[in-house]
Amino acid sequence: MQKHGIEKERSRFGKRTLISAILIVIMIPATILLGVFALDDRKYYFISLLIILYTMLPFVMLFERRKPQARELIVIAVLSAIAVAGRAAFFMLPQFKPVVAIVIIAGVSFGPEAGFLVGATSGFVSNFFFGQGPWTPWQMFCFGIIGFIAGLLFRKGWLRTNKLSLCLFGGLATFVIYGGIINIGSMLMFTPSISREALIATYASGFWFDLIHAAATVIFLFILAKPMLEKLERIKVKYGLYE
């Protein structure tokens, strides 16, 4: 039962997931851009808290259907804490961090909404150690969207729990999604307009950082994915955390 429990978690996309997708794909980017252009990138705490509020809405919808279980949120909080601690533990190695790997594991184990929540809160809380700034909402979104996509792909059966599948997805997602979005955010922090020259220069300067980040995600997934997924599966079975 424990061995095959994760596979049974796959299901069709429900109302909660569709609403989450709308919030993540439309509302959160719009909120970040509002902070950049309307608030001059000065209200990043406010924007960050709005993002966390958006990510909590799907869980409010879930709790409307049944009695909330504190242990569900505790597990998600623990995963976020592990991601924050992991980022802090490797502070001396720029971009070599386990955050994306843990976010992917959270998305696979507990679903796309949980993956986004773990990613967004990890980015927000860890920046109390690394420094808050206009980059925080961008990092929250980048971490979160990877966790959300990981959960969606797993539910559809396109992402497996074997090392090859997870490492391949993790490396590509970190390099293409995180690097692709965060570089745009970095450019907008220095210039209000987007030009082809500025975009090329930004991606070129961030290439090696993105490559190191992607390699770190692959390494941490290779080491952590199997034991963490097995332990999380036992927790889900023991406490009945399946949806």
Rank of each mutant, 00 (worst) to 15 (best):
L166T: 09
G171A: 03
E230Y: 13
T161Q: 12
A201E: 15
P98S: 11
L53Q: 06
F128T: 04
T217C: 12
I149R: 00
A225M: 05
T136E: 02
V218R: 00
C167D: 02
A114E: 07
L199A: 15
L159T: 06
V218G: 00
E197D: 14
I182D: 05
F143S: 04
K8M: 14
I177R: 11
I74F: 14
A216V: 07
E233C: 11
G151P: 09
I74W: 08
I145E: 10
V125T: 05
Q139H: 09
I182K: 00
S109P: 04
L79E: 02
S48E: 07
M187D: 10
A120S: 02
K15T: 15
L62F: 07
F13W: 15
Y239W: 13
G147T: 03
F222W: 15
F124K: 01
I177S: 11
F148C: 08
N183A: 08
G115F: 04
N127D: 11
S205L: 07
S205T: 06
L229M: 15
I194T: 14
F59T: 06
F90W: 14
P98L: 10
R160H: 14
F116S: 04
Y44S: 06
F154W: 12
N183V: 03
I6G: 10
W135R: 06
V78Q: 01
E113M: 08
I177F: 12
Y44R: 03
I19M: 04
A106Y: 09
M61W: 09
C142Q: 01
A101C: 01
Y54I: 02
G133K: 05
V25W: 11
G240M: 06
V237Q: 13
Q2D: 14
G144M: 02
L34H: 08
M56L: 15
C167P: 03
P98T: 10
Q132V: 10
V125A: 07
A70N: 08
A30I: 04
F220C: 13
V176H: 08
S109I: 02
